[in-house]
Design a protein around this nucleic acid. Sequence first.
DNA 1: ACATTAAGTGATT
DNA 2: AATCACTTAATGT
Length: 219
Amino acid sequence: MTNSMLVQDRIATRFQSLFEEDLVRELASVGELKKVSVDDFLMTVGRAITHIPLVLSGALKVMTEDENGDELLLYYLELGDTCAMTLNCCTKKSKSAVTAIAEEETEVLLVPVEKMEEWMVKYSSWRAFVLGSYNSRLNEMLEAIDGLAFNNMNERLIKYLRDRAMVMHSGNLNITHHQIANDLNSSRVVISRLMKKLEMDGLIEQYRNKVKVLEFMPK
DNA sequence: ACATTAAGTGATT
DNA sequence: AATCACTTAATGT
């Protein structure tokens, strides 16, 4: 009794601003509070999905596993977050494509998947919550992909400049940003921006039609 | 002085 | 990252 009251309070304080009264009450009665200690798995790849987690405290790291067994970090779940992957597969009875591990002492509220569809039509606040978290998760992943692409181009540019200086036997290169962009299948604007950063990092100097690769310059 | 080309920047997708 | 639109700087005629 005292236990259920405590849980109810926790849920109320966390979600009352987000959800309507009726939903908070249902959440409290149907939800199951679970504590996950550090490095414990809340979910592993291939396991059947029976519940949707709502994070009450702590943080979860959500990952995928590729065929080599390498872990690929997808995103973190924190206070008030829920797992988009789980939300997505909830209509079918499917198995998890992801692994969730606790980064710290974490408390989650487990909601049976059957409640998903029911609440989706019943509560507009729940619908908004699900759609919202799905959206923010998607944006996080897009950002991550963007970052990777950016780093790859930057590394390609550095390699290009080095190779070029190597065959010229000099750090003095007579090239335009436009030519570099063509060689790297990029656009002039992108190269200009990356070059500007390299210049500010002290790796190169720039003039019109000319680039000095400082690490290949006589000292 | 004027035109042309290279490089820099902000905003948008 | 790529594209667009626009500015600024350097160079050639």
